[in-house]
């Protein structure tokens, strides 16, 4: 297998990484809103969030992607397939991240909130200055885990025609008749990416303010 083929796979990994990173970020923001809704104590907010989460956790990502890919043009939105892919992945990871965050918020010790109440914080200030940073710290390892899951799941967006690592490998395998070399290379590239994320996560965790040094 030539260096040129391997290089094509490495180039395709830009799509894998790009789509995953954007989806994680959008999913995180959505998850913040969802987890706030889950914990709002108001059924009006909680119920739709619960429905959203059980839907996206209960339907395979592949089916979600195909559904969104076909649904968007059907309702008159002709968006590039990359947008459909990002929407699908973001919604899916939002559901998982929301559950993580909810657990994180619920684990913020009550005394820390009471201490903030005692020095005059408004509920909003308690949320932003105390609950969010502490919940993030508690859920950071789960977030890194989710990032790795999403990186691997991104292989599924090949079904909507995006030539990321997996799709590139399939194309190259069928044109070169070197499937073992090519899929091994693809596996290696995934491994390096995921391993780097895990490593960065471990450093990040240690760099968080106040973490055990």
């Amino acid at each position: 297998m030539s260096f040129k083929l391997f290089n094509l796979l490495v180039q395709a990994s830009a799509w894998t990484i790009g789509i995953s990173a954007i989806s994680i970020a959008i999913g995180f923001l959505l998850a913040l809103v969802l987890s706030a809704a889950l914990l709002s104590g108001k059924a009006l907010y909680r119920r739709p969030a619960e429905f959203f989460i059980s839907f996206f956790r209960g339907v395979p990502l592949l089916v979600q992607l195909l559904l969104i890919y076909n649904l968007l043009p059907f309702i008159g939105l002709n968006v590039p397939s990359i947008v459909a892919a990002i929407i699908g992945m973001s919604l899916c990871t939002a559901a998982y991240q929301a559950e993580n965050l909810r657990g994180g918020f619920e684990s913020v010790p009550r005394g820390l909130v009471e201490a903030a109440d005692m020095v005059g914080f408004t509920p909003r200030q308690v949320f932003l200055r105390i609950k969010v940073p502490i919940a993030l710290r508690l859920t950071f390892p789960a977030l890194v885990n989710e990032a790795i899951m999403i990186l691997k799941s991104s292989s599924l967006v090949s079904v909507v025609g995006i030539v990321e690592i997996t799709r590139m490998a399939q194309d190259l395998a069928s044109s070169t008749y070197l499937p073992i070399e090519i899929f091994s290379s693809a596996a290696l590239i995934y491994l390096v990416i995921c391993w780097s994320v895990a490593l960065a996560g471990r450093f990040g965790e240690r760099a968080l303010p106040g973490g055990a040094k």
Binding site: P109, G111, E114, A115, A116, V119, G120, P133, I134
Partner: peptide, 30 residues
């Protein structure tokens, strides 16, 4: 309530802020 300060059995310091951060936080935020 702002006339009252409270000290807890379990300290309840905010773990993501330094000692100085814990003490100055309410002055800044509130």
């Amino acid at each position: 309530r702002s006339q009252i300060g409270m000290v807890f059995q379990q300290f309840n310091l905010w773990p993501h802020m330094t000692a100085l951060g814990n003490v100055s936080e309410a002055l800044k935020t509130v």
